[in-house]
Design a protein around this nucleic acid. Structure first.
Lengths: 173, 173
DNA sequence: CGCCAATACTTGACATATCAACCATTCACT
DNA sequence: AGTGAATGGTTGATATGTCAAGTATTGGCG
């Protein structure tokens, strides 16, 4: 097997110089594919994957509200445009926002009933999509993959500009 | 170990229902982090990661030209906006485009000397960034990761690459 | 030859992402 | 209190991504 799989996929003529390069390309490419399939699953509901992600976060702590920037730190992908993301969800009446009375700088976000209903209709499709995507991996392989990715992120965070330095304590809202 | 690493990172209270979910989140999140570090490495040269990727593809087949859509298929991330991506690179004089005389529908792209020079200055920084990112993985682990991602994509491709066929319902007004 | 479908892009309209500058509020300290 | 720094979030300019429809060219078929 002179050629790697990724090399064939992107029709690359020269082999990778280092395994890092191949792993990097494989990671980015695989993630992109998964992302597209998940996005296609939520798209019929008029949601982007990021919007779906926000709703999941809010459902996770429902009925407690979550301040804006804490949502940002919990996102799977870094989202600097969190305000406008929330604007769109609020415009669709899927979330509600109120200013915190104890600390008036904060804006507390809650998922609405409509949001909960919408998420409920997506639960099964999302699980099915994910299941289909990971069908080719055994459960042992899936565990290995999780472990490797965890290790990889561990190293990544030590390099710099990480968002979640320390999982901070809960603050009473 | 009641909590998984990812669960801590995104401050998730409830554990994942399936290993697929955890693996999916880990994959997307790790990829996002890697992507940001690579993007930060090419950014000082005024390039996005996608633009860098195009230049790499063109250098790979230099001095032979590559038609537009073939670039798109070789990209790491799917890029529907390939035309405008090339427009920007051409505006910066990093690539050149000419219409193919044998098949006048095609547009052939070549990397310019300036493009080659620019890439040359980025070779070392990119290798260093990648090396730093993968520092926490042994070479055996890196190989395992590549293999797992390859297997995963294998399954992904078999699901179907087509556009979302379901004609969607009307969205929120 | 003449027509039509397929190919290879290109363009326009719109949604979203990104970075920096900004405002309001709170905290720390004198 | 009173000032300055830090925090929490918003906004504006600009870049980029995405989908649908459009143009030009080619290849196939009668």
């Amino acid at each position: 097997m002179p050629e790697s799989k990724i090399q064939q996929e992107i029709s690359q003529r020269k082999p990778f110089e280092t395994a890092f390069q191949e792993a990097g390309v494989a990671l980015l490419r695989t993630s992109d594919q998964l992302q597209r399939r998940l996005a296609a699953t939520v798209e019929p509901c008029g949601l982007t994957l990021q919007q779906y992600n926000v709703l999941r976060i809010l459902r996770g702590s429902h009925p407690e509200a979550v301040p804006t920037l804490e949502i940002a730190t919990r996102m799977i992908e870094q989202a600097p445009g969190i305000t406008r993301l929330l604007d769109r969800l609020e415009a669709k009446r899927l979330i509600e926002r109120v200013r915190c009375s104890r600390d008036r700088r904060r804006v507390l976000c809650t998922i609405s009933t409509a949001g909960l209903d919408l998420l409920a209709t997506l639960d099964r499709p999302m699980l099915e999509t994910l299941g289909a995507c990971f069908e080719s991996l055994s459960s042992a392989q899936t565990r290995d993959l999780i472990q490797l990715l965890d290790d990889l992120r561990e190293g990544l965070y030590s390099i710099g500009f990480h968002r979640n330095p320390t999982p901070k304590e809960e603050r009473n809202p």
